[in-house]
Simulated scan of single mutants.
Amino acid sequence: MKFVSILMGSKSDYSVMEECAKTLEKFGVLHEVVVSSAHRSPERTHQYVKNAEAKGAKVFIAAAGMAAHLAGVVASLTTKPVIGVPMKGGVMEGMDALLSTAQMPGGMPVGTVAIGSAGAVNSAYLAMQILAIEDEELAAKLKEDRILKAKKVETDSMGIEIIL
């Protein structure tokens, strides 16, 4: 069974990461959601990643705020793609999490998306694009989604004149 694993450093992150799960569900992509902290429950994180990989996890999405080490820890435990979602919070409103997630050492990549809700949705889309490399049905669904988004922009702009 192939699936996407969604990890969060804290239960409070679920209000944002629920958008990731909903996006995957919309496309029929199997996933599981786990709360595990790189700092507060490192053994749980290590054990979960190893077990998830053995069960068929193909992509890991890791959401964390502040020091945001969860995605990096996950990347150190697997060679599967890891996508980091920086969460808002703290004095820097997520910029600290963004930098912590994006600044990985060479050879330990973590794909990093936007802070917060947009990042949660984009992490789901990026995970699906990775899966779609070997899944033609999912690739077709993603193409159709892009077509519908383009049509919505055209429909929403009806009656608005562009003057150059």
Rank of each mutant, 00 (worst) to 15 (best):
S37G: 10
V153C: 04
I6E: 01
G90M: 04
V35F: 02
A120I: 00
G116D: 01
V82M: 09
A75V: 07
E144N: 12
G90K: 02
S5E: 15
A124R: 04
A97E: 03
R40H: 10
L138D: 00
A124Y: 04
E25H: 01
L7D: 06
Y125V: 12
I160H: 15
E18C: 12
S36H: 01
S36M: 10
V91A: 10
G111S: 15
D135R: 03
T23K: 13
I83G: 07
G106E: 13
E137N: 13
L164M: 11
H46D: 11
I61D: 06
F60N: 08
Q129K: 15
I130Q: 07
I83S: 10
I83K: 11
E32I: 02
E18Y: 10
D135T: 03
S41Y: 07
G9M: 01
G94H: 06
P42F: 04
A54W: 02
M92K: 13
A97P: 09
I115E: 09
V33D: 00
H46E: 14
Y14L: 14
T101Y: 07
I160F: 14
H69R: 02
F3C: 01
S15V: 15
G106A: 15
P42M: 00
H69I: 06
I163M: 09
V73I: 12
A140K: 15
I6N: 02
L138H: 05
D145L: 08
I6V: 12
